[in-house]
């Protein structure tokens, strides 16, 4: 590949990569800022949540895990939608970067879903006396977790990058239309079987709690964006390893 004629090089760049060579350093500059922001926001959020906010009347201090549980659940759901958004962009405009964005988002989404499940279980033990309850929210989160794993497994098991990108995009789009159906059906199923659906919205939330929750959510946002950009950078390097601008980076 190093023997490319100039003409080939121009061609290749024009049609296959929108501009990863400009995106790569830009993302690199943004990551430290985002990470710092995430750490600061999380620190303030945790401080307010753990120290400032009062104990819950019914649940004591056990409820404080919601400062992790709720933001990660929100992120897990939101990231899937963002993934589908990039997938649509990829299929319509054939831009490679958007497919890479979707693939970079998936592990963070899966991680958030797993966090939500684990914190849910930790919350459930003191609350309901059991680690796992077939509660509608937990069950649909579990299914969402499997959707993420399926997406990751599919894109990783296809060797050809073009096919991998497009297959992943198709799957994400099918998935995003199914997620509401899954949620709806799981809620239906849950009310039908009168499961232990304990609502976390029973008590009205104090302003301090809300502030802590919002700060933690913002921190989760920043963290997710930073991790995604980081993963996109790695994916770009993998895909573009043979191009001149990557070789000029001297990092391989």
């Amino acid at each position: 590949m190093t023997m490319d004629t100039p003409k080939n090089k121009v061609n290749w760049h024009l049609f296959h990569y929108a501009a990863p060579s400009t995106f790569y350093p830009l993302a690199g500059k943004a990551i430290p800022w985002l990470m710092t922001l995430a750490v600061v926001l999380a620190a303030i959020g945790l401080w307010i949540g753990m120290a400032v906010a009062p104990s819950d009347a019914q649940q004591g201090d056990g409820y404080r895990i919601i400062y992790l549980h709720v933001p990660s659940s929100w992120m897990a759901m939101f990231i899937y939608i963002v993934m589908a958004f990039w997938s649509v962009i990829h299929l319509v405009w054939k831009t490679r970067l958007s497919a890479l964005m979707a693939q970079a988002l998936a592990p963070t989404g899966a991680w958030m879903a797993l966090m939500s499940l684990v914190t849910g279980a930790l919350w459930g033990k003191p609350m309901w006396g059991t680690w796992w309850v077939w509660d509608a929210r937990l069950t649909s989160m579990l299914l969402l977790f499997f959707l993420y794993l399926g997406f990751i497994a599919l894109t990783r098991s296809i060797d050809d990058p073009d096919r991998s990108d497009q297959a992943g995009s198709l799957l994400a789009i099918v998935g995003v239309f199914n997620v509401p159906v899954i949620y709806f059906s799981v809620y239906w199923w849950n009310t039908l079987h009168q499961g232990a659906s304990v609502s976390s919205k029973g008590s009205s939330m104090a302003g301090v709690m809300l502030a802590a929750m919002l700060l933690m959510s913002l921190a989760a946002w920043m963290y997710s964006i930073a991790m995604t950009l980081r993963r996109v950078r790695v994916l770009i390097l993998q895909r573009e390893a043979s191009t001149r601008w990557v070789q000029e980076l001297n990092i391989l």
Partner: peptide
């Protein structure tokens, strides 16, 4: 892989 992709999507079918 097919099973992993499809089964979560089919949960509503099973439920209904």
């Amino acid at each position: 892989l097919l099973a992993l992709l499809v089964l979560p999507l089919l949960a509503p079918v099973l439920i209904f």
